[in-house]
Amino acid sequence: MIRKSFLSLLGMCLAGTASAEWALNMPRGITELSLETYNLHMMVFWWCVAIGVIVFGVMIVSLVKHRKSKGVEPAKFTHSMTAEVIWTAVPVVILLIMAIPTAETMVKLEDSRDPDLSIVVTGYQWKWHYKYQDSGVEFFSSLARPSVEARRKLSGINPYDVENYLLDVDNPVVVPRGSKVRMLFTSNDVIHSWWVPDLAIKKDAIPGIVNESWFRATETGTYRGQCAELCGKDHGYMPIVVEVVEPDAYQAWVDTRRDDASRVATAQ
């Protein structure tokens, strides 16, 4: 019976990854490094599955064959140096095999030199502030109105009726496709964490400290994420939306933003 529950478990887990659906597995994402991350994840996963099959396999054989009800006499052996050495050495080798590509990816992740564009992201309780260092465009980005209404306790609004419930903002971040974007994170109050799964970026925004990360998006589209560090009561309500657009569209966006900003400035 144990066997059955375990097999169904493994089955669930294999089915989950085989179809590699977004809702079951990690997204492949839209940057070179997000894909590498995904591949590392799958590599380790399959190693674990393989080891699991062997370990659980042996155990299941034993559970089936070596039971008292089958009339077996228990064996007398109590230890084996050879066995201990083997099952210490083999995992070490496997871990080394995992470690090498992982280390390579880690080095790339840290290399935020020579960006085309830098954005300073500041976490607030409970919204994000973005400042484009090169063009000076800056704005706050918070949970979009429809979600704000629906999220209230017993609001009576069905979350399914709200588009992108809890994952939509008033002002998305816009970045050009193909450019290396450096993100600089800090916070105004408590620790937040800026996470967009498709960019494979999750970095803590810490008051008094500036953290760095970078990405180069290869596909246009809208990518969503959320604050990933508990930051108080509305931690669940500070999503992130990144729009990756073609470079000229990006330029146009920057220009209108600048116009807006200067109009506000002259009006004051």
């Binding site: 155990m59 008292k68 066995a83 995992p91 871990l95």
Partner: peptide, 28 residues
């Protein structure tokens, strides 16, 4: 990261030893 991964080794030793304890036993 490397230090963390290493913990899998002694933990594995424990798991393997349990399995070896069951192996050719007379289980109930």
């Amino acid at each position: 990261m490397f230090a963390t991964m290493l913990i899998a080794v002694p933990t594995g030793v424990k798991v393997f030893n349990w399995v070896a304890t069951m192996w050719r036993g007379a289980m109930t």
